[in-house]
Amino acid sequence: MNTKPMEDSQMDTEALLPDGFFDGLAEPAPGTLERLHARLAAAAADRQLIDVSYRTVDSPLGRLLLAATERGLVRVAFALEDHDAVLQALADKLGPRILEAPSRLDTTARELEEYFAGTRRSFDVPLDFALSRGFRLSVLEHLPHIAYGSTESYADVAKAAGSPKAVRAVGSACATNPLPVVVPCHRVVRSDGSFGGYLGGPEAKRTLLALEAA
């Protein structure tokens, strides 16, 4: 026990406190922080203070990160892209006011669920292409015109996007598609019919094409 004479140093006052003294203050009822978080997300959305809302969903391709601005869905990310790194990149590009707000992405989550169940063939949530510009944007804007269950070659897409010679650029536009699955870059394959690369991994591309062929 500390019996030194009164001296207002931090050490001395801390020595007066038994261990766990503040435990009663420390833990509010279980679920309190979750409830307050939901309240914060709702109030922030009402006041338009959120740059990006996000949630995750489970899918046959693993856990997907869904992120949206007020304009629409801005990013879909596979687990192998590292969701924390994706959120940091969104903070850097679109603003750091980023909150997990599942309800704002309910429609997207439901449409994805229907898509993976085979009952939906196209998405009708608003999209925000803020992360893409120039020729890559032209490519992405063309992709939703490739019908469910069919494919186009990189050369076909280059022609459709207005630059028939930019076949490699189509490849990089697909490889950096910020909205995979929803913007169907998986429907772009090599001219010889082989799959080509995919940012979710070749297995993911195979899964999606098999789903749509069923």
Partner: peptide, 24 residues
């Protein structure tokens, strides 16, 4: 790399701020 997403601020400091608010 810039500031972390605000969600990280909430998860790192939300509990402490709640304790402080409860005490005050």
């Amino acid at each position: 790399m810039g500031k972390p997403p605000f969600e990280r601020v909430v998860s790192a400091h939300g509990a402490v701020v709640l304790r402080v608010c409860r005490a005050v």
